[in-house]
Each structure stands twice: as structure tokens, then as C-alpha cells.
Design a protein around this nucleic acid. Structure first.
Lengths: 201, 201, 201, 201
DNA sequence: AATGAATGAGGCTTCATTCAT
DNA sequence: CATGAATGAAGCCTCATTCAT
């Protein structure tokens, strides 16, 4: 009756953590269930007590990332500063969050690949980015209301802002020497003010 | 003897084209050599007369993409217009090139995944992006010389410009409903002028 | 201490009953210890407190069937009517017994399979049928003594009588729509009198 | 184009033959694909070039047996002798056929088990016995027309005749020392004339 | 060159059994 | 006694690669 020694959810998290480490290092395709079990310090079969299949581990990692994203977006919405400040904060929050959990972030490489339309896993990074775009578009709309951005700014601009963030992430993932955190300011700066001389002010 | 060379190369291209179609649809991980052979209309064993291994097919697709990138960059360098015009042209060229070959583009999802550090395939998307960044940085430098961009603009800004392009590509890949081509203008517009009101001029 | 014996035996019977239900439905090969435990309303590990192994459950089911057979044969021997009446009673008793416990009967399908020569389980349906044949042969011998059957009737005829019974059982098992009980009379009728016109009297 | 060295059907038969030998010896449940491959003198994976799964091998064995049955029934129907002679011939043919291919016959033990209703393999021994019953019933009907059997003889008697045959087979399978072939005459004799004194003539 | 039959290493998953609580 | 989490041996099946024709 009383949860054994380790409660189910905690053990599940342990295994997922191990899976994330393994996937981050070798990639999902090259990661064996046995690797994950070994990384978690348990037997191969035990993984199946907590996850239905190897793919379920990737799905769970996706859900963790998606949930992190949702948290960040929720906070951005709860924020009450001027819209552009909140946009800047959002950009920083995303990059900081990724930089803080580099192993989870590397899973993105596999999640993108697995998000290839239709038949694959129940895993849709497209939806995550749609959420980001919606949030950024809303912020830009508010900023327009506040008279802070040009009025023709719309959904496509939101897409580009999200792109700047995710594109930096991408470059960092394929070349971890890039200073991810330090890209936050240039992203904000460019997205707000561009690079053209005299553009600011 | 000589004519064989041509045939051989042509056949190799056919097979690679088939592989790209298959990889684009199912992803590299789920693509079997037999699928590729069937798509190319040849026997399974024949693939090995032209490619050393299954992974060599992915590597070849990478090389095709990398070579396309190199071509685009070469053209950007050969261009003699003002730097910012060339930058805009580069952005358009990249997106147009991707939109024109959507199947090859989808391979990116697998190439990113395979570019994960060290031990994997001899395939480095990081280097491709480094080239892009260098090219963009050079254009920005020139633009600064021409007095067209703010003088503090540097490598990190180049990274963000590349990010905006690749980030749009990414969003399009995980959700092909996005109008990739139509994102070129917003990318250029934002990267040059930002979104802030009064930012332009 | 003593009372525990009773409890223990009762619990063992409960588990065996659950096992029989499960085996009857899914077959022994497809039945998992966990299925049996669930059907018995106990934990998986507890099964092992009463049975040494999964196979021991099948062996126990066999023993129950064999013991039922032995009871029926014992009663047939204790009977004091004319031999052919006792033979008819025996046939009815066997079919009735099976029809009354259809789940236990279905285990026969697995017991036959497991009775395949030597190396398998310690479980020998051949011996059960040998007992049946011996009993029927004895009845036929008595009937001959009583002048009720043709004198050349012997062991092989006993085999055929047993076959008629078991063959009906078999057909019923692979097609439960057959009216098992109603086959008892035709079995007796045929085995005693055949089907030929004018055969009787 | 030209079939390789060994044509597909022949190779398939070789493998099926090996599977039958293995299944006959160890039972289907205990037979590993690797055992079958070894018995066929080929590699494990090659089995899958000819059979979709381990179960497909059992299904194929079933089909072979069912087809043998169908052949025997076809011949019985083509026969033009008096119905009871044809019935006797049918009984002999079935037992002879089984005795001639004892390994294929032993598969029956697994086929019965697998015929357990509903969810299992696409394999229905019940249908095979229904065919037998129909054929025997038809023969009995004809015999009645010919005035050779008692007029009340019907479907249930057919079931008992089939039972006598299959029941002998069963006893032989669980105890191969039984002289299967020599049971044909007693089966015919009993089913036609019973055992009761004065029953014949 | 081209083929596709053959191979067998490898990986996922299942599940009987054990054992700490 | 009872439990069910943990284990790892075992087996099915896939598929990249080879090679005889």
C-alpha cells in the first residue's frame, strides 16, 4: 500500500533523466535501451516497468521539453511589463532554459527529426513552435497597441523572432562552442532595432 | 571506358535522388536500403555498387546540400551590389533554394541529428553554418565600411541573421504549411530594421 | 498450525481454479503467471507460495483431471450391474463430468500437447488412456463372460470405445457448439450395436 | 529472371518439412525459429524469407494437414462402391495417411491446442472435423438409401464415427506404441456392427 | 554490372522467477 | 504470508551487407 521505497514518479524521472543523458550523447537512433538502463543503474527489463517502449522515452523527453516551453510561455503571459520588455525576457528565458539543461536541449535534434509529419511518433514540435509564434505575435500586437512597434508587424514577424531564437539554438546544438546565452542580447537587439545604421531611435 | 564514367555518375545521382526522396518521407532512421533501391528501380545489392554503405547515402545527401550552400555563398561573394542588398539576396537565395528542393531540405532534419558531436558520421552541419556566419559577417563588415550598418554589429549579429533564416527553415520543416518563401522579406526587414516603431530612418 | 493446513490447501485450490479458467480461455502457452494471479485476486509472487512454477500449475490441473478419471473408473468398478450397463454408465459419466467442468476440460488441449513424448512435463495423458482402455477391456471381458458380447472382442475394441468417447470430446473442444452430452447415447448405441441394419438382435 | 537455383516453392517446402520435424519432436511451444533453421540447414533469417513468422509455420503445417484431409475426402466422394465400403475405405485411408507421416501427425497435438476458439491463429481444426462429419453423414445417408444401415442413423452417428477415428489417433499420439493401422479394422467393425453378441447379421 | 537470396549480429521486448520489504 | 518491483535470460524479428550467379 505505502509506496515502496522509491515512489513510481521519482523512479520514472530518474530513468528519463538517464535516457536524456544517453540520447544527448549518442542520439536517439544509436541509443539502446540497455544503455539507458545502465545509465540509470538498473536492469534492462526495469525500464519497461516505467516506459512502454524505447520510443516512449523519446516522447517523454519531448513532453518534458514541451512542458518547459509551456511554463516559459505562461510566465511571459503573466508578466505585466511593457510588451517589448516581455518579449526580450521571453527570448532570454528560452535561451537560459536551454543552456541550463544542455542535455535535454540536445534531444531537440532528435525531436525535430521525429517531428517529420504524419506517421511517426505522437510528438509534434510544430505545435510547440506554433505556440511560441502565437505568444510572440500576441506580444507584438500588444506592443503595437502600446505604439512600440510598427503597425504592419504581424504573424510573419513573429515567425522570424521565433526563428532567430530557435536558429541560434540550432547553431549551438550543432556546434556547442557557440556562446548561446550571449546571443540573447543580439537577438533582442536585432529583432527590435535591426542592424541598419540610424535604425535605432 | 570513358563513357562508362558518365553513366556511372548519372546512375549514382539517380540513386542518391531516390534516397533523398525516401529519407525525406520516412526519415533516415526508418529508411531501409531496400526502400531506396525500390525507389530507384534497381536491386538492393546494386546500391552498394555506388555507395559504400547506408550511411554513405546520407553523407552524399549532406554533400549535395553543403555544395548547394557553397554555391549560394560563392554567388553572394561574386555579387557587386551594396552589401546589404547582397545580404538580402543571400537570404532570398537560401530560402528559394530550399523551397525548390523540399525533399532535399527535409534531409536537414536528419543531418542536424547526425551532426551531434564527434563520434558519428563524417558530416558536420556546424561547419556549414560557420561558413554562413562568416559570409554574413563579411557582408556586415562591408556594410559597416559602406556606412550602412551600425559599427558595433559583429559576429554575433551574423549568427542571429543566419539563425533567422535557419529558424524559419526549421519551423517550415516541422510544419510545412508555413509559407517559407514569404518569410524571406520579413527576415530581411527585421534583421535590417527591427520591429521597433521609428526604427527605420 | 493444523488449521493453516486447511487454509493453505483451500488457497491452493483457489489458485488452481483461477489457473484453469485462464488456461481454458487463452491456452497454457499464452497464459502468464500474472494472468493467473489476477484471476485469483492475489499478487504475482504469491502464486509461487503454492506452486513451484508455471508448469506446476499445468501439472496440477492434469492431476485434477487424472484424479477425476480415476474416480469415474473406480465407480465403474464398484458398480454391480451387468457389464454392458456399466460400460454405458461409464461413457455417460465421462461425458457428463467433462460437460460439467468445461474449463477443466479445455485444459485437455494443452495436456495432450504437453504429453508429447519423453522430455516434457511429468504429465502423461497416455497413462490416463491406458487406464481407460484397461477398464473398458475388463468390462468387455466381463460382458463376454456374461455372454453379452462377441467373444473375439478384445483390447483393440476397448481402444475404439475409448476413442469414440475421447474423439467426441475432442470435436467438442475444437467446436463447443457440439452437444457433448447428447453424444453419449449414440456412442453407446454404436459401440454396442453398430449402425448396420439388422445388426441389433 | 530465371528462378535462382532452388525455386521458391521447393525451398519453402524444405523449410516447412524441417519445421514439422522440429515441431513434432519438441512441440510448437518449445520450438525455436533457430531450431527450424538449423534443421533446414539454413540461417535463422532465411526462414523469414519464406514465412512471415513462427506462427506462420504452424499455420502452413495446418494447411498441409487440412489439404491432406481434403484429398482423402475428395477420394471418398469419387469412389463408387457401396457407401459402407467407402466408409470403411475412408477410415483406413485416414489412419494410413497419418501413420505414413507420423511427424506431420504429431503436429495435430499443437493444432488442437491452437484451435482453441476465437483469438488465436487463423487455424480451425473444428472446420476440418466438420468436413469429416459431413462426409461421413453423407455416406451414412447413402447407406440408408441403400438399405444398409438403420434409418435413424444421422449426424450424431457420423460424429461418433469420426470420433472413433480421431480418438484412436489421439491415443496413438500420446502413446505411439499403439498400433494405429491395426485399429482401422476394429473401428470399422465396431462402428458397423457394434460389439454386442448376435449384433452382426 | 546487376541481382536478390542468404546470413547472422543486434536490439527490443516479454516474462518466469526472485527477494526485500 | 503476501507482495510487486526488479532482473536478465531468451527469443522473435529486422536489415545491412555479402556474394554466387
Amino acid at each position: 500500500m505505502a509506496p515502496k521505497r522509491v515512489d513510481r514518479a521519482a523512479r520514472r524521472e530518474e530513468i528519463l533523466g538517464a535516457a536524456v543523458r544517453v540520447f544527448a550523447r549518442k542520439g536517439f537512433a544509436a541509443s539502446r535501451i540497455e544503455d539507458v538502463a545502465a545509465a540509470a543503474g538498473i536492469g534492462k527489463g526495469s525500464v519497461y516497468l516505467y516506459f512502454a517502449s524505447r520510443e516512449a522515452l523519446l516522447t517523454a523527453a519531448f513532453e518534458e521539453l514541451a512542458s518547459t516551453s509551456a511554463d516559459i510561455l505562461r510566465e511571459a503571459r503573466a508578466d505585466s511589463r511593457p510588451a517589448l520588455d516581455r518579449l526580450a525576457a521571453l527570448v532570454h528565458a528560452v535561451l537560459r532554459s536551454m543552456a541550463q539543461r544542455p542535455e535535454l536541449s540536445r534531444i531537440l535534434l532528435d525531436l525535430w527529426s521525429a517531428s517529420r509529419g504524419g506517421e511517426g511518433l505522437p510528438l509534434d514540435m510544430g505545435a510547440v513552435y506554433a505556440d511560441y509564434r502565437a505568444a510572440v505575435a500576441e506580444l507584438l500586437r500588444e506592443a503595437a497597441t502600446e505604439g512600440a512597434v510598427r503597425p504592419e508587424v504581424g504573424t510573419r514577424h513573429a515567425t522570424v523572432v521565433v526563428a532567430a531564437v530557435e536558429g541560434c539554438l540550432l547553431q549551438w546544438l550543432v556546434d556547442p562552442r557557440l556562446p548561446l546565452i550571449e546571443l540573447a542580447d543580439p537577438i533582442v537587439s536585432i529583432c527590435l532595432d535591426g542592424v541598419r545604421l540610424g535604425a535605432t531611435r
